[in-house]
């Protein structure tokens, strides 16, 4: 049983990470941070760089929670998060949500929405 965090470096990321840590401490488990690279450009700022990964682990250690980071390359971001949740037998999936414009929703679809609808466990949506 773990807490799985769908992590994208954006404005809600910090709040979501803190929420995940809190939940993990409460449940006495670790956090698996899933940072999916959609792999649709040669470089991508949605991927957490090496030192960013180190910072996440350190913040986990400070809070007394074991943080592991997974960085799969998968065009289906929500699917990759759900896969990971299933693999780790997650008790909870934490996902950051943002306010989106109507056009933005039309173009991009919502990763958070798919996770909420398709996850087999509880899902916690955190607003940034």
């Amino acid at each position: 049983m773990t807490v799985v965090l769908a992590h994208v470096p954006n404005e809600s990321a910090d709040a979501a990470f803190d929420a995940a840590l809190e939940q993990a401490r409460f449940r006495g488990t670790g956090v698996v941070v899933v940072n999916v690279a959609p792999g649709d450009a040669p470089v991508d700022d949605r991927i957490v760089p090496e030192d960013g990964v180190a910072a996440l682990t350190r913040r986990g250690a400070d809070a007394g929670v074991e943080v592991t980071v997974e960085q799969p390359v998968d065009g289906d971001v929500a699917g990759a998060v759900l896969d990971s949740a299933k693999r780790h037998d997650a008790a909870l999936v934490v996902v950051g949500v943002r306010r989106r414009s109507a056009v933005g929703k039309l173009l991009m679809g919502s990763v958070a929405q798919r996770i909420i609808l398709d996850a087999d466990c509880q899902v916690l949506g955190v607003k940034g």
């Binding site: 690279a37 649709d40 040669p42 470089v43 991508d44 700022d45 760089p49 090496e50 030192d51």
Partner: peptide, 8 residues
């Protein structure tokens, strides 16, 4: 095999 790197 998409090649992607972090943009840092």
């Amino acid at each position: 095999d998409p090649q992607t790197r972090d943009a840092k």
